[in-house]
Amino acid sequence: MASSTPTATTLFRRLCWDGTVPIEVKIDSKELPAGSDRTLESFYIRAPRVSYLPLLIQEVKTFLFDLVLDEASAKDMKTDDWWFEAEGGALLKWHWPVGLLYDLHLVAHPAPDFQMKPFTIILHLASPPTDKLLFTPSIETCKQSFMGQLKEADFLRWGNTKRVTGLRKEDQDGLWEGIVEHNFDDFWRIASKIAPSPNPLAPPLTPNPSSPTLPAPSSRPASTQPPSGSDRDNAYSVRSVPVRIYLPDGPVIQDLVPPFLEDGLPHSLNLFLSAQLPLLFKPSPTSPLTPVDPNAPKSNLAFALIQGVIAPLDCEMAWLGACMSGADGWVNVCIGLDK
């Protein structure tokens, strides 16, 4: 229940939820009907990270209808045919959270000093390439896709989807409504029934004498021992943390991410990334068992961006799953190259 969620967890969830990204929507002027005011070709939005492109259309539509289109064309305009592209022609996925689209753009086109620059996207008013978008661009298919991701995350954590399917219909709909309305309390009142919780009450992990470099920063919740099976919502008792790695211009990598490794140490972002991307991340100092790859870099060549934040590599995967996941339960790790 929300009332029993630890304060630190609520704080991180709130920060992720409240995060917004600046977007400049440019309208493809070739597709504007005659009689439109072409001097107003850009529209700026501060979009919630947890939102989706189809949910931004209403706001863009109001702008377009009030200021750009004349009355006759406004009447004929169908938003069903609208779709978005990034500058340069990359198709933007309707079913990926806006924050993920923004972070991926940021790692693929890094601005000097990571200035918060608006992400320019092109709105097309006609002929959506449905075969490439994979979905009919509509709010309903976007909702279905969100529910699919939520269940996939649930299945990864617990080996079944009982937590999500066990919600009443109005609660399932309420989750989506919480995103549409960008209402933290409405969303998390329901989501806290399915999201795992880091367990700060458990005793901290005893430092392992064989790995003196084990970092123990005080800025994050202490590690926990593998808990007993009785703690059904503990982030450290899941089978796997739902995580995807996004490389600039692809591919997307997904694998099983247990919260603890065989040697009993908590699985960290460093261990995870050096195992999945050994050409970019040097072997973790806390993993003495891993044989050193001769191709392994001497220092890290890349960084991990999670929810717009460059994540410290000693973050534990279970903690990321509980505190830094998106509304669909997935931790999206975008990889950028160090300059």
């Binding site: 699919g148 269940k151 649930d154 299945f155 997904q254």
Partner: peptide
Amino acid sequence: YINLAFSPAPDDTVANLYKSF
């Protein structure tokens, strides 16, 4: 559906689904 449980995103790869499920 995968494992009688959920519909994966159509742009996810078979490799990713295989590794996890």
